[in-house]
C-alpha cells in the first residue's frame, strides 16, 4: 500500500478550493443586503402612509412581510452554501478516487 497522504490531501485541496472560492457571497453579505432592503422599505412605507397611498393600518403588516422575505433570503443562502461545500468535497474525493482505490486494491471511495 503506497499512499502519500500529504500528496492526496494536496490533490483534494486543489480540486476543492476553486469550487469553494466560487461559492459567492457569504450569508453575512446576504444579511447586509436584506437589512438595507428592510431600511428602504421602512422609508417607503413611511412616505406612502404620509401621502395616503398606503393605509397606516396596513403598515406593520408590510414591514413584517419584508422581514419574512429577508428570513427566506438567508435560508436560501444557507442552502446554496451547503451545495458549494458538498460539490467541493465530492470533487476532492473524485480527484483522488483512482489513486486511493488502486493503491488499496479495493473500492474505498465509491
Amino acid at each position: 500500500m503506497a499512499l502519500d497522504v500529504g500528496q492526496i490531501a494536496q490533490q483534494m485541496l486543489d480540486a476543492a478550493l476553486p469550487i469553494l472560492s466560487q461559492g459567492g457571497a457569504k450569508v453575512g453579505d446576504y444579511a447586509e443586503t436584506e437589512f438595507k432592503k428592510i431600511a428602504e422599505r421602512i422609508k417607503v412605507i413611511g412616505e406612502k402612509v404620509a401621502t395616503n397611498d398606503i393605509h397606516a393600518d396596513d403598515a406593520p403588516m408590510l414591514l413584517q412581510v419584508q422581514t419574512d422575505v429577508a428570513k427566506g433570503v438567508i435560508m436560501a443562502a444557507t442552502g446554496l452554501g451547503e451545495i458549494v461545500v458538498q460539490n467541493a468535497i465530492n470533487a476532492a474525493l473524485g480527484v483522488v478516487k483512482g489513486v486511493v482505490n488502486g493503491a488499496l486494491g479495493f473500492g474505498l471511495i465509491i
Binding site: 483534494m12 461559492g23 461545500v85 458538498q86 467541493a88 468535497i89 474525493l93 473524485g94 465509491i110
Partner: peptide, 21 residues
C-alpha cells in the same frame, strides 16, 4: 468554510463515500 470542509472531509475518509448535504 475551510474548517468545516476539513472536518467533513475527515469524516468522509472514515466512511468512504461521496456526500450529500
Amino acid at each position: 468554510m475551510p474548517s468545516r470542509f476539513a472536518t467533513i472531509t475527515l469524516l468522509l475518509l472514515l466512511t468512504g463515500c461521496s456526500i450529500s448535504l
